[in-house]
Amino acid sequence: MVAIRVDGLCKSYGAVRAVDGMDLTVDRGELFGFLGPNGAGKTTTIRALTGQVRPDAGTIRVLETDPAVEPLETRRQVGILPEQGSPPSFLTPREYLEFVGRIRDLDPDTVAEQIALWADRLGFQSKLETLHTDLSRGQQQKVMIAQAFVHEPAVVFIDEPLANLDPIVQEVVKRFLVAYAAEGNAVFVSTHNIDVAAEICSRVGIVADGRLVAERTPGADDEPLLEVFLDSVDDADARDVPAGDLIER
């Protein structure tokens, strides 16, 4: 069952065409990796899929909603972990997750259970009463991951899920994402990390120059994902990509 469908998506910022004819679909039960170099259009695509920016052209369906037309309904049904952390807030993690729960009309008891669950899962029990602005970046990222899943959405958009996390928590998050997708949810992960994409994603789309240039199923295709990525980006992306021979150093 298709959870996300994108046809001919375009979005420009002035003269810069950030997304230029993106086509993709993601089914429920898939952990879809959205892989590409810096500036390839990954974050803009996520922002368009979640109604944060209005596309210039193209059609989008996310769980039967059109984020360009009804962005609040889309955001009500999905979870979003933005690339940039939240700005400094003087709420504690507990209060922040209560805030998110109230915005999402969740029952307070459910929110309390989710707070306990996520604090235990990612290890921020001792920080539940610390002001968010005084948390380390890693701790802030844990809280932001929790807010994306607190309402158990059927589709989740995640931009760089492992940023600033220690190796133990990275492993926990990776396993959780795989299990969450296996429960029939669609998990859309934008990342630069080829190894992580190859390890956890059921399908990987490679984006360059604002469009999808290749798709692979890790494990099923013989060619290493790094090779596919380098070939795709060399062929398609005319932006600032480092010289291939330097990668050998």
């Binding site: 507990r94 209560e98 805030f99 610390t130 002001l131």
Partner: peptide, 10 residues
């Protein structure tokens, strides 16, 4: 130092 607060939001 890190500042803490009791739950006032709810």
């Amino acid at each position: 130092p890190d500042r803490t607060a009791s739950d006032r939001f709810a």
